[in-house]
């Protein structure tokens, strides 16, 4: 059975290894608000923060471009940094970029690699816990939105989504709807129907 849990709620009287939980006195406790499935012992955050993992794609904005490094705002607990000798890309302040997380270093900075400047367009900020739904299984959801609206879309795991070209407004509407109805079943069909009805 799936059920909505809040921080501090006991998920199991046994110690289990579940993301976003902890074990206290032999019991497994939820640390967030989420949907818990006791069959599969999975806890999917409804509200949650982004914690950087190596290899993840992020979207950011160049805050301070210097000679050797660039500071990147990621709308996250930590700032990003790009060490420029590893790349040939020329970046200036306020550029929107896409990059990959290399590591979270000891000083609390997210080291980024493989930066790519995204020219034009805009960024939408969504809750990072909604990103998996925006992407869909094997990126099916975002592919659907992108194809129907002819917009270029890049989704960062940090909750920033870059949108450019095509029907930007329809793409924005679709993404907002996904975020709002992320935990309501039948989402894929509803989004498909919405896109179809608005496509002309």
């Amino acid at each position: 059975m799936k059920k909505l849990v809040t921080p501090g709620e006991v998920l199991s009287d046994k110690p289990l290894r579940i993301d976003n939980s902890l074990v206290e006195e032999g019991k497994t406790i939820s640390t967030i608000m989420g949907m818990y499935d006791d069959q599969t012992s999975s806890l999917i955050p409804i509200e949650g923060l982004w914690y950087p993992r190596p290899g993840e794609k992020v979207i950011g904005v160049i805050e301070e471009a210097r000679l050797n490094t660039c500071n990147v705002a990621l709308n996250a607990p930590y700032k990003g940094i790009i060490i420029l000798k590893f790349s040939e890309v020329n970046m200036v302040n306020n550029d929107i970029i896409e990059a990959t997380v290399k590591e979270l270093d000891k000083t609390g900075t997210i080291v980024l690699s493989r930066p790519k400047v995204l020219y034009g367009g805009k960024i939408m900020a969504v809750k990072p816990s909604k990103v998996p739904r925006i992407l869909g299984k094997e990126n099916t959801m975002i592919t659907q939105v992108s194809q129907s609206t002819k917009a270029s879309i890049s989704v960062g795991m940090n909750g920033l989504v870059w949108v450019k070209g095509g029907d930007v407004d329809l793409a924005t509407k679709a993404i907002n709807q996904i975020v709002e109805e992320a935990h309501v079943s039948g989402l894929t069909d509803r989004i498909a129907a919405m896109l179809k009805s608005k496509q002309q």
Binding site: V61, A73, N75, N94, G120, G121, K122, I123, M124, A125
Partner: peptide, 12 residues
């Protein structure tokens, strides 16, 4: 949110 989400070029 703590970033500027639009470029000047886009909005103008």
């Amino acid at each position: 949110m703590n970033i500027t989400t639009m470029t000047r070029q886009y909005i103008t």
